[in-house]
Amino acid sequence: MKSGAQLYRKEIEEYRMKLFFIGPTILVLIVMNVFPLIWSLGLSFTNYSSLVSRKISFVGFANYAKILSDPFIWKYFQITARLVVVAVGVEFLLGFGLALLLKERFRGWGLVTTLMLIPMMLSPVVVGLFWTFIMDANFGLLNFFLSFFGLRRVLWLTDPKIALYSIALVDIWMWTPFVMLISLTGLLAIPQSLYEAADIDMASFWFKFRRITLPLVSPLLILAVLFRVIDAFKMFDLVFIMTGGGPGDVTETISMSLYRLAFNKFKTGESCAMAYIILILIIALSNLLVRWIRRTRV
C-alpha cells in the first residue's frame, strides 16, 4: 500500500510533467497559428483586396455564398478529389506492399531503403520542373522508353485525358517512400514473438497477416494516409509548374483556384472564405480517419 503522501507526490510530478511536456507545444502552436487563423477568418467576411483596397467593408457571408454557388468550384473539388484518391490510394497500396517486401533484412538493406527515400527528399518545385522535362513529348525520357519498347508516344501533360494522372504519377513517385517508411517502422516494431507463437499453432500466412500484421501496423499506416490526404488536398506546386491547371481546366485543383483568387485576382476576402471552406472539408475528412485510427487502437 502506498501512503497518501506518496500518491500526492506522484500526482504533482505527473502534473508538472504534463505541463512541461505539452505546454510549450500548445503555446507555440497558439502563438504562431492563432493570429493568422483569426486574421483570415475575419477577412473572409469582408471584401478586402490585399493589393487594391484602402478600405475594408463587411459583407457577411457573401463570399461564402458566392464560392459555394460557383459551379466551377465544385468541378475543381471533384478534380482534386480524383487526384487525391488516385494518388493516395496507390501510395497506400504500393507503400505498404514495399514495406512488406523490405521487412526482412538482406545484404544492402540499409542502402536500398535509403535510396528509395530520395524522391521525397526533393522539393516539390524541383520535382515538378524535372518531371515536366522527363514527361516532355519530344525530348522526354519517358517517351524515349516507350518508343524503345515500340510503343506510341504519350502526351503526358497535354492530353486532356491523361494530364491529371500524370500529376498523380509524380505525386506517387514522390510520396510512396513516405508511406513505405512509416509502415516499415510500424512493421519492424511488431514483436517477433507473436509470429513465433502463431507458427507453433501452425497458422497460415494469411491468418498471420490479417490477425497480427494488419492490426498492429494499421494505426501508423492510417496516420501516414491521413497526412498524405491533408497534403495532397492542398497540392499546389506540382500542378502549378507542370500544367498550370491546363489544358483547359482538366488539372485545375482547388488550391490552384485558390491561388488564382489570392495572388492573381487579389481577392483576399474571397480567398480566405475559400480557404476556410477547404479547411472545413479537410477537417471533416481527417476526423473520419482519426476516428478510424482510434478504433484500431482498441
Partner: peptide, 19 residues
C-alpha cells in the same frame, strides 16, 4: 486577372482540341 483566367482556360482548351 479574372478576365485573363477565362481566356487562358478556354483558349488553351480549344488548342488542346477539347472544344
Amino acid at each position: 486577372a479574372a478576365l485573363l483566367e477565362v481566356t487562358q482556360k478556354y483558349w488553351s482548351a480549344a488548342c488542346a482540341g477539347m472544344m
